[in-house]
Design a protein around this nucleic acid. Structure first.
Lengths: 205, 205
DNA sequence: TTGAAAATTGAACAATGTTCATTTTTTTTG
DNA sequence: CAAAAAAAATGAACATTGTTCAATTTTCAA
């Protein structure tokens, strides 16, 4: 009886369709302007249907949150084809920044919004976290840098956190500057130029 | 006729009272759980009164946003009693981080929330921005560091942005880790340890 | 004291997240 | 194939929150 399997597949497809619509609206209109009604309308389903497939709005946010980390993590993983760990580290920063600036709404969802995580508190405390996986890619690379003789006199985890903070801080401030207040805009290319400074600094560590 | 002056003073006082109540509720229950009704109730006024003194919720958020930057800026200004610019720079980072970790809700309001700034778009595009003032304190200090022979081979503004990004990134990630997801917590003292790494690095530039 | 000006109020509206009894569609059964 | 059962989808209705505004209360000068 392949019916149940087909049903399961259809459920997955509709779930994916809802997520796709939600993501599209987030990017187009911003997260704040995206409502359940909007999402339902855009795929010609009713409000209630969305609630059949997702417990609440936070579950939708959390699903996209996960998608974002899988996406970013995937882009970072590709860089392990770069064998020199220091070169890979530099490339990872660039990829990360590009991801953030190209997908500001997703970046917000992943790093600044609080709501998607409130979902976790209700459900599964110890869920596998894709954010942790991305951080581990950085950590592995920094370890290899240390093995290659870099970063002498520095501690592994604090240094990883500092590097992530630098890159995240640039993304966060730049995205904020672009969307929050048009009057206090960062100078053109400030992120690119600051990242150049970052490269100089870590190259000499 | 001192009546009108007293009236003006009373208006200011009530405005301040509303802000104080709002700030208290923000800190106690979080920004998301603070409603206009909550604020009004807590000071025994009606909803409507709040709207007499503030155009909308965003104006309240923006007023607190300004207060936060004035507060942080004040703490940073005090450090100009430290004459050695490099020592002052180090102290500024510490003060900034302490402010963020001690006042996470205010920090969110100042750096991550989008709403307070939507207020500006409606009102005054070219308003004096306290955030810019705080940034200028950093910029002045970095200039003095350069005059003293530090940071050779680095560009002023990109370096300032990088430094701010580092510090802001640490605050942002740590605050997010503490509030968003209790499962993926940062290690104890990670910010302190990472800031130590930061100090080592900039000392050698 | 009185009437106008100022301040305050809270009922009412709109938007949004959410629930759930009802309806529609699909699948299974006889 | 028709009827019953199961599954899926619906949208009316409720709760909360931001917001408005006509009505009420308070203040104060004449």
């Amino acid at each position: 009886m392949g019916t149940t399997e087909r049903k399961a597949k259809e459920k997955e497809e509709l779930k994916a369709l809802i997520l796709k619509a939600a993501r599209k609206l987030f990017i187009e209109k911003g997260i704040g302007q995206t409502t359940i009604r909007n999402i339902a309308d855009s795929i010609d389903y009713s409000i209630g249907t969305v609630y059949v497939y997702f417990r609440d709005k936070n579950e939708i946010l959390h699903a996209l949150h996960t998608q974002g980390f899988v996406d970013l993590g995937g882009q970072l993983k590709v860089l392990f084809s770069v064998k020199d760990p220091m070169e890979r580290l530099k490339a990872m920063g660039k990829v990360y920044i590009n991801y953030g600036l190209d997908n500001p709404e997703m970046y917000d969802l992943m790093f600044t919004l609080r709501a998607p995580m409130e979902f976790l508190e209700t459900i599964q405390k110890d869920e596998w976290d894709e954010g942790k996986a991305s951080f581990d890619l950085l950590r592995t690379t920094v370890i290899q840098c240390m093995d290659a003789g870099h970063f002498k006199g520095h501690k592994l985890d604090p240094l990883c956190f500092l590097i992530w903070s630098c890159i995240h801080g640039m993304c966060s401030l730049e995205i904020g500057s672009r969307t929050k207040n048009a009057n206090i805009k960062n100078p053109e290319n400030i992120v690119t130029d600051a990242y150049d400074e970052f490269l100089i600094i870590i190259s000499n560590l």
